[in-house]
Amino acid sequence: MSALLSVTNLSKEFGGVHAIEDLSFEVQRGHVHSIIGPNGAGKTTLFNLVTGLYQPSAGAVTLGGRDITGRAPHKLCEMGMARTFQNLQICMNMSALENVMLGRHRHLGSGALAAMLKLPGLRKADRHCREHCRELMTFVGCGDYLDHAASAMPYGALKRLEIARALAAEPDILLLDEPAAGLNATETEALKSVIQKIAGKGITVVLVEHDMKLVMNVSDHLLVISYGRKLAEGTPEQIREHPEVIAAYLGGGTRERQAQEVPA
C-alpha cells in the first residue's frame, strides 16, 4: 500500500484563530478515507487547504509524492484531484449536463481559434464528452434531469450532479464534502452505492460526512478531528471503540479538554 495523499504538519490560521493546527495524516491509494468530527472541527477548511482554495499557514501536502502545497485548484485538477462542495458550487446559468461537461474541461482542447472555427476534431471530442457526461449523470442518479437547466433541479439532485462533475474529470482522488447533508434516507442509500461503485473503479475517495451509518459502512479508514487537531485515526472498528472519540461525540463539555490532551 502506498500513500496517494499525504498531509504533514498542516496549519491554517484565520486572524489568530487556529482552524487547522499541526495536522498530519496519509490517505492510502484506493481507500475510502473518511474525515469526521464535530461541527466547526475544521473539516471543510482542511478540504479547502488540500484542494488549493486556501493557502496554508504552515505544513505541506503531497499528491502521489509531488509537493502540491498551495497549488492553484485548476492545476490540482490537472493532476487528478476532484472535489464537491458542502454548499453547492453549481453554475446556475448553465444546463445540468453542461455543468458535468465543465468537469471534463481538462480532457478537451479549449483553444480559442479551434473554438471559433469549430474545427472538426474539437466538435467530435465535444460530442463524445456530451455522451460520456450523460452516462455519468445516469450513473450518479441524475438520469431524470438530462435535459434540465441546473436552476430547475432539486437540492438532492444538485448534490449528485456535483459528484458527476467531479467524476467527469476522471480523477485519481475524489474529495466529497458532506455529500449526504440534506438527503433523505432513500437518497442516502443511493449515495452509498454510488460511493462504493466509485471506489470500485479504483478511485481514492476522501469523505467528510456527518452521517455515521454511511461513514462506517463505506470507509476503509477514518480520521477524527476536533478543533483543527487530530483526535484519533484507524479502521471503523477501532474508531467505534475509541474512548476519546466517544467522549468527543457524546461528552459535549469535555470536548475542549479532550482535544488538548491528545498528543499531536
Binding site: T51, L53, A72, P73, H74, L76, C77, E78, A82, R83, F85, Q89, I90, C91, M92, N93, M94, E98, N99, L102, G103, H105, R106, R165, A166, A169
Partner: peptide, 15 residues
C-alpha cells in the same frame, strides 16, 4: 460561462 456561474466550480473543474 462557468466564470459567471461559479468561479470556484470553474477552478476545481480545471479552468
Amino acid at each position: 460561462r462557468a466564470l459567471h456561474g461559479s468561479e470556484i466550480a470553474a477552478q476545481v473543474a480545471g479552468v
